[in-house]
């Protein structure tokens, strides 16, 4: 079941990406960038390695964290059980949001939550590779890393269950009950206490913010990313998976991650290179060379 769902998602998202590359990036630009792609890959390699390391840590940690006795100890000492606090603060909002439920909206938001989200994360990384300047793609990947790293820290410290877990009769688990098969997908990648912040929201908003910063290169992508990002944020609430507070926290996390990424990218490796022995610094790709 899991593999079947995974295959479906892969095929659909690939189709969306191909379409996106043709429409947003354009075949001309794609053809031109083929010659330079190796240099660009080399330039972004350090950032990509950091992201992969963060993702691996994250996938292990998300499974292990709730069971590991050390983390249980840390949580018992420093952790905050926030579920009831959130519920009392915003309790009525989600039932109100779901009062607009229609079959079409459920289908749209379920699609956005699963397929739209994956597309939103993967597509810009490829699109930015088609730009001669590698800074956007490095910023994007760095922002992803920051989202995951900071998000994981929140998950350790804040213990909260989502709205469908607290008021199942008011907030329908729309996607899981309408399309039970998706349960298998999300169950593999998440735990039900990993709620605050909403990483779906933070990553989607991150993409939208970077799209805004690169709107001159890809004027068409910015509105698409904005609409899709907003839809992802709303879908997490409409589908009863996240509280509004999780979504707000997700937006804040996105803003912090993008701001930090913009400051860090080009700087850290640069500083590092500056301290390296002469010969080594010269071998670094030109983009990483310290400005002195």
């Amino acid at each position: 079941m899991f593999l079947y769902v995974l295959l479906r998602v892969t095929v659909v998202v690939l189709a969306m990406i191909v379409l996106g590359l043709v429409v947003v990036v354009g075949t001309d630009r794609l053809r031109r960038s083929r010659r330079d792609v190796r240099r660009r890959m080399r330039t972004i390699a350090p950032t990509a390695v950091v992201l992969i390391a963060v993702l691996l840590t994250n996938s292990v940690a998300r499974r292990v964290v709730p069971d590991s006795s050390h983390i249980v100890g840390i949580r018992a000492t420093f952790g905050v059980d926030a579920t009831w606090w959130i519920y009392e603060l915003e309790g009525g909002f989600l039932p109100w949001l779901q009062s607009f439920e229609t079959t079409a909206l459920t289908a749209y938001f379920s699609f956005v939550y699963v397929y739209g989200y994956v597309f939103l994360l993967v597509f810009p990384a490829l699109a930015y590779l088609a730009l001669p300047d590698t800074r956007p793609v490095r910023e994007l990947l760095a922002a992803y890393s920051l989202n995951y790293a900071l998000g994981l820290l929140c998950y350790v410290l804040v213990i909260a269950y989502g709205p469908r877990n607290v008021m199942p009769e008011l907030v329908d688990a729309l996607m899981y009950d309408t399309y039970p098969r998706y349960q298998h997908l999300t169950r593999q990648v998440n735990r039900n206490t990993n709620v605050l912040p909403s990483l779906h929201t933070s990553l989607a908003v991150t993409v939208a913010l970077v799209a805004y910063r690169t709107r001159e290169a890809y004027p068409l992508w910015y509105p698409i990313a904005a609409v899709l990002g907003l839809s992802v944020a709303v879908s997490t609430m409409y589908l009863g998976i996240h509280w509004a507070i999780d979504v707000v926290a997700g937006v804040v996390l996105a803003a912090v991650s993008v701001a930090l990424a913009a400051r860090l990218v080009g700087r850290l490796p640069g500083e590092l290179a500056g301290r390296l022995p002469e010969g080594l610094a010269d071998r670094l790709p030109s983009g990483e060379r310290p400005e002195r």
Binding site: T83, Y161, R164, N165, V166, M167, P168, E169, N192
Partner: peptide, 14 residues
């Protein structure tokens, strides 16, 4: 227990 484990229990508690 939350709804994932006891859908009726959490409603009684609330």
């Amino acid at each position: 227990a939350v709804a994932d484990y006891d859908r009726e229990g959490i409603q009684i508690a609330r």
